[in-house]
Design a protein around this nucleic acid. Sequence first.
DNA 1: CTATAATGCCTGCCTAGGCAGTCATTGCCG
DNA 2: CGGCAATGACTGCCTAGGCAGGCATTATAG
Lengths: 165, 165
Amino acid sequence: MPKPHYKPDSFHLRDSMGYLIKRAQRLMQERIERLFEQQNFTLQQWAVLMYLRDGLATTTADMCRNLHHDSGAMTRLIDQLESRKLIERRRSADDRRVVELSLTEAGAEVLDTLIPTACDALNTALDGFTREEVKMLQSMLRRLIGRMEELMPNAPAASDKEKVS
Amino acid sequence: MPKPHYKPDSFHLRDSMGYLIKRAQRLMQERIERLFEQQNFTLQQWAVLMYLRDGLATTTADMCRNLHHDSGAMTRLIDQLESRKLIERRRSADDRRVVELSLTEAGAEVLDTLIPTACDALNTALDGFTREEVKMLQSMLRRLIGRMEELMPNAPAASDKEKVS
DNA sequence: CTATAATGCCTGCCTAGGCAGTCATTGCCG
DNA sequence: CGGCAATGACTGCCTAGGCAGGCATTATAG
């Protein structure tokens, strides 16, 4: 690596990619969550509902892996959504260990009200960005994510025992 | 706004800027924190030390505002760093409400070992990005942050009572 | 000068997430 | 078939952060 992006001597936190991303993330989350809180929803809860709607995950373990969320926390999160009648649990017949999740009518309706809110928040935050800039930002973030995922093979977060060789 | 970036009908979580940023942030944090954990440091703790070193904040309240951190949590975080002899508290003479913070020798030494670690982590994560791409990514994130900060005038997180008009 | 507001730091309470461990079920091996 | 690892869901424990309240000190209004 001929030219490192960051050098210890001249390092300043405010230029750090980690710092910038963290700050952006925090602001974005606060922003959207403030809009969601009237209906008592959390970003994570919303993400779970979205993933269910789009069929990106159908079981608890799927959800954990795809959202990089702790499995214990996921169980409790699902408890809440279930008690609010937004999703349903159903023990799988094929593999009786797994619990299949599904969106209820009420859940789908709630999503219909949350999505426009989220879109608005994103659009106003990205106001001033051109279409191309947004595309570029997305693609760069995706590259960064991909890069870090391959650097972190057995990323935990979806804890559940894992042998470390 | 003639052309919104996101439309409710065609919205998919995985294209959402919030989702991408969150995922990138999470991976980055896990990555760096895993490197820091041998020396028992947290990103926030490191950030506080860095801010102190660079004189970007000298009091608890400063720290909270600049790092968007809760003031209660900040007090406890500083308790820890103080008990580890990395920073010192000193009641200000001018304004006896204020507690001035300062880095100790030990604190500065610790920083010298942490910074290279962080740089490495960032550099390897950004491997594959050109110098220009990194600059562009930084600048876009800064724009986004600036935009959201002005949209969130009285952002809390540095809680402490605030009248809402 | 005094009463009231604002500020800074701190504390207690609550919730969410990380982590380890449990139990049931399934896959894999001989 | 029988034993053992792996998997999925779940639970308890611990810690960090969000939030509200408290106290001391300073700023402001009248």
